[in-house]
């Protein structure tokens, strides 16, 4: 299969899964923003995306996207490391037009992955997982939190200052990762030329900045106790 045994095919898999994940993040961010305006509205979204069959199927699809993206990332990086040869340069210099993030995508990706692990423990394990396994509800100060009461979980998680710091670091890593990944995905698909190069990089910058500001807003406003 050419998606596995050609360099461009493997890159295409990275590109398409990456774009799908960006799309997921966009929906995720939009739903988070609901929490800023209406706690009831946010909990309605939580209920809608609880252990209903469509939400479970979508979650499994999403997990598959993540796994494929990560497996291919390690595979490609390993091949690229080998292609570099045994001896390394003694002196290296990064030209101005080369983004720092573009040369550190795997490191950024690992930080993002660690953040996802933390995030699943904080939210998913106390929401969808509880519903799926009919497990114990999460208890804060003696009060059981309903698996669909996402707003209470947000408030609890970000009442701890270190979670605010960790999430902001995570969001920054996502920003760097997507800033390169977004335009790079289009380049790999082949939708790029001399004119679109700067356009795509500008769209990339704006899109990821708005996306990450949306995520950060929820963390900061709940963390500061304003909401």
């Amino acid at each position: 299969m050419w998606l596995n045994n050609s360099s461009i095919g493997r890159k295409l898999v990275m590109s398409v899964t990456g774009l799908a994940l960006i799309l997921f993040l966009t929906f995720h961010m939009a739903m988070n923003l609901v929490a800023l305006f209406s706690v009831e509205g946010y909990n309605m979204v939580c209920e809608f995306l609880g252990a209903n069959w469509y939400a479970v199927v979508a979650t499994m699809g999403l997990a598959a996207l993540f796994v494929i993206h990560i497996v291919y990332a390690f595979w490609l990086t390993l091949q690229n490391y080998k292609a570099r040869g045994n001896d390394r340069y003694a002196v290296t210099d990064r030209p101005k037009s080369v983004e720092w993030s573009s040369q550190n995508m795997l490191v950024l990706g690992v930080i993002v992955l660690l953040g996802i692990g933390l995030h699943l423990v904080h939210f998913w394990s106390k929401m969808m997982l509880v519903e799926l396994t009919n497990g114990k509800e999460f208890v804060i100060n003696g009060n059981a939190i309903s698996p669909t009461d996402g707003a209470a979980l947000i408030r609890y998680t970000f009442s701890q200052w270190y979670n605010v710091v960790l999430y902001l670091i995570w969001i920054a890593a996502i920003w760097f990762h997507l800033n390169h990944g977004f335009w790079s995905a289009f380049q790999t698909i082949g939708w790029n030329n001399k004119v679109w190069q700067s356009r795509l990089q500008t769209i990339s910058l704006w899109y990821t900045t708005i996306l990450c500001l949306g995520f950060a807003a929820v963390v900061i406003l709940f963390g500061a106790g304003i909401l």
Partner: peptide, 12 residues
């Protein structure tokens, strides 16, 4: 040869 990751070092 390796897989291109669009770092743009080549064109620079």
């Amino acid at each position: 040869f390796g897989n291109c990751t669009n770092t743009r070092a080549c064109e620079a």
